[in-house]
Design a protein around this nucleic acid. Structure first.
Lengths: 359, 359
DNA sequence: TCTCTTTATGTAACTAGTTACATCACTCTT
DNA sequence: AAGAGTGATGTAACTAGTTACATAAAGAGA
C-alpha cells in the first residue's frame, strides 16, 4: 500500500508511519489501482496523471502516451467519489416519480434519461409511491449520495422538501405540471387544460350525461388539476364523479359502479388512460358496446392506447418532449447555473374510435 | 474557510498557507457546512463528531447532545463522496434494464428498489435499450459514480462487461433468467419452462396449428430461451413463427400477418403479454372472436392482462418475488461479501378467458 | 500515595483525487 | 551574455470524511 512521506523535519519526529506490514500482500490482491499507482508505473507525478485526464494538451505527447499506457495496464478508472470531493461534481441528478408502474412515467423517464446522457449526466430514479414524506426522505438520500439536481413530478405537498431545496440551493425542476408562478421552474403540460379539451370533445359530440372516473385526489396534484379543469362545463351537462385506485383494475371497478346506477351516462371520461383501458374492458365484459352504447375517453395517450379495441380517444400529453426539455433545462442549470424559465406544452386531442356523436 | 495547521516544524518553513483572504465572506455564503464546521460549533474535535455518527455509545451523552445540536443548527449532512473515499461505500447499486417502457421491468424494479431500501441501499436505474455495448458503457458510468453492485437483466452478450465485473470484483446478480451454471448468480425464472407451460396448455386444449409471435431474437436471451422451450412440442403440432417489435403495435402487425396466411391457426401464442394485448385487439378489429375463433395466450402476466377483454390466459412470472429476492441477495453480497446461490422461480399458468378447448 | 484500568477526547495520518505554485529546461529578445 | 518568456513537470496543500494512536482525567485496587 502507498505510503507518502510528508514530514521531512526531524526535530519533532512525529509518529512516522502506521505499520501495515502485517496485512501487506501486494502480490495479487492489489485492489483497485489509484492515481498514485498510475503515476508510479508511468514514472511521473500525480499531477501529471491528473493533467492527462483534465487538460491533455498541457502534457507532452510522449509523457501522455506513457501515462495512458500505465492507465490501461493497471485498468485504472478515476474514482467518482474522490473527484466529487474536490469538484463537488458527481455528474448525476435524481428523479423522484410516484411510480414506475404507470407507463406514462416510464416513457417520461426514458426520454429524460437519454436527454441527460447527451449532456454527460446520469439519471438516478427513486420512486415515492406518491407519498410526500417518502419523497422528502428520498430526496435526502439522493442528496447524500451526491445528486446535483432534482426532477420532481408535480408540486410536492411537503414543505420540508421545498425547504431542503431552498437551503441546499439545489437545481430542481418540476414536471408533469405547469404553473409559471411556482417557486420552482415547471416544465410540463397544463393538466386542467387537458381535461378541458377532453370534456369539450365529449360535449361537442352532444354528451350531456358524463361519468368521470379519476384516481385518488389526495396527494396527487395532477389529478386535482384535471378535476379542476372540468369546473367550467356546459350548463346542461351533468357530471358524476367516481374515485378509484389508479390501475386498470380500478378502472374496471369504477365502470362497474357506473353501470349499477339507475341512469346510465352516455359517456365515461377517465382522467387517465389506464383507467380508460380498465373501464372499456369492463363495459365489454358486461356486453355494453363502446362507443355504440357508451363513449369512453381517456387522458395521457399511452403507447398502448392506440392499439386497444376500440382504439382509445384520448388527450395526448407530450411526455417525450417534456422529458427532453426537462433534461436540457436541468443540464443547463447544473452546468451553467442558469435557472430555466417555466415551459408549457400543449395537450392535444387524439381522436380515435372509442367516442361517438350522440343526438 | 477552515485552515489546518499541519507543519509545526520551523526549520523548513514550507509555504505556510494559501491566502483565501480575498474571498472570505463567511457571513452568509457559508455554503454547505462540513464536519470541521460542526466540530468548531460544538467545541469538540472532528473525531468526536465522526464518532457521534458512527459509534455514538463511545461518546458521552453530554458531548453527544452538544454535537447533535450543532449538526441541526448547521443543517449538516455527511457527504457521501467523502465517506465513500474512506470506506469505499456509496450505499447504492445499479440496475441495468433494457427499457422502462415494458411494465414487466417497471414492476420488477419497484420491488427491487423497495427490497434494497430495506437494507439501506439505494437503486440507480440505467436503461440499455437492449444493446450490449450500451450496457457495458452504462455499467462503466455506474461504476464511475460509485455503484457497489449490479443487477443485470438476462445474460449479457458483451464479454467486456463480464471482464469488467470480474476485474472489479463487483457484486453482480443476473435476473429474469435462470441458469445455475452461469458464472454469475442468476435469480430468475426459467424462460424456456415458461414457454413450455404455455405450449403444453394450448396443446392440452387440442390446438395443433399454432402461430407464435415473438419479439426480436437478436440481443435478447430471454426471447431466445422462450423460443427454445418450444422445441419439444407435440409431434402433430405445427408452429409458425412471426418476429415483430416488442410493443402492442408489433402485436397488432403480427396478428395481421397471421390472418393474411391461407391457413388460419387455431391459437396464437405470444411470447410476451404486450404482444398478446396488441394481437387480441387486432383480431377483434378484424371481427375475429377471441377465444371463439382463435385462442390467444401470452407470457409475463402483466397487471393489466387480467383486465383485458377477454382476460388474457398467460404464464405468470413472479417478478415481484424475484425483485425482492434479488434485492436480498445483492444486499447480502455487498454488505457481507457472501456470494449468493442461484435461485429459481417457477412460472405458473394463469388460466383466464382468452383460450378455449378445440375438438 | 502510587500504579492500573477504564472512559472520553484530541491529534494527525489516511483515503483518491485536483490544483496553486514552484521549478527547471529551453528558446527568444535585446 | 543576461533577462524574459514559454512549456512541461513536480511538490504539497487542499477537499470531507474515518480512524489509529496518544493522552488526559477519573475511579479502583494495592
Amino acid at each position: 500500500m502507498y505510503k507518502p512521506f510528508r514530514y521531512l523535519c526531524d526535530i519533532h519526529p512525529i509518529r512516522a508511519a502506521k505499520k501495515h506490514a502485517g496485512t501487506m500482500s501486494q502480490d495479487h490482491s492489489k485492489k483497485r489501482a489509484n492515481l498514485r499507482d498510475v503515476a508510479k508505473a508511468a514514472g511521473v507525478s500525480v499531477a501529471t496523471v491528473s493533467r492527462v485526464m483534465n487538460a491533455p494538451k498541457t502534457v507532452s505527447q510522449q509523457t501522455r502516451e506513457k501515462v495512458e499506457a500505465a492507465m490501461t495496464a493497471l485498468r485504472w478508472r478515476p474514482s467518482a467519489a474522490a473527484r466529487a470531493i474536490n469538484s463537488g461534481r458527481s455528474r448525476f441528478v435524481g428523479a423522484l416519480v410516484p411510480t414506475l408502474d404507470n407507463a406514462i412515467f416510464a416513457r417520461f423517464l426514458s426520454h429524460l434519461e437519454s436527454g441527460l446522457n447527451l449532456h454527460g449526466l446520469s439519471l438516478v430514479v427513486a420512486t415515492t409511491g406518491g407519498d410526500p414524506k417518502v419523497e422528502t426522505e428520498k430526496a435526502h438520500t439522493l442528496l447524500d449520495i451526491g445528486a446535483e439536481g432534482f426532477v420532481l413530478s408535480g408540486i410536492s405537498q411537503d414543505p420540508a422538501l421545498l425547504d431542503l431545496i431552498d437551503h441546499m440551493q439545489i437545481a430542481t425542476i418540476v414536471t408533469s405540471f405547469f404553473d409559471p408562478n411556482y417557486v420552482l421552474p415547471t416544465i410540463g403540460y397544463d393538466n386542467a387544460e387537458a381535461s378541458r379539451i377532453a370534456l369539450a370533445h365529449l360535449e361537442g359530440q352532444g354528451h350531456r350525461d358524463i361519468a368521470v372516473i379519476h384516481g385518488p385526489k389526495s396527494l396527487n396534484d395532477r389529478t386535482r388539476a384535471r378535476l379542476q379543469g372540468l369546473g367550467d362545463h356546459h350548463p346542461d351537462s351533468a357530471l358524476t364523479f367516481y374515485e378509484t385506485p389508479l390501475s386498470t383494475r380500478g378502472g374496471c371497478d369504477a365502470a362497474d359502479m357506473v353501470l349499477q346506477q339507475a341512469r346510465r351516462p352516455t359517456a365515461i371520461l377517465c382522467l387517465s388512460d389506464v383507467l380508460a383501458a380498465g373501464a372499456m374492458s369492463e363495459l365489454q365484459r358486461q356486453g355494453i358496446g363502446v362507443p355504440d352504447d357508451i363513449s369512453v375517453m381517456g387522458i395521457d395517450d399511452l403507447p398502448s392506447s392506440e392499439t386497444l379495441y376500440p382504439a382509445l380517444t384520448t388527450v395526448h400529453l407530450p411526455v417525450a418532449s417534456m422529458g427532453t426539455a426537462a433534461a436540457d433545462a436541468l443540464a443547463l442549470w447544473v452546468e451553467k447555473g442558469e435557472k430555466p424559465a417555466p415551459r408549457r406544452f400543449g395537450p392535444e386531442l387524439a381522436l380515435r374510435a372509442s367516442t361517438r356523436r350522440v343526438s
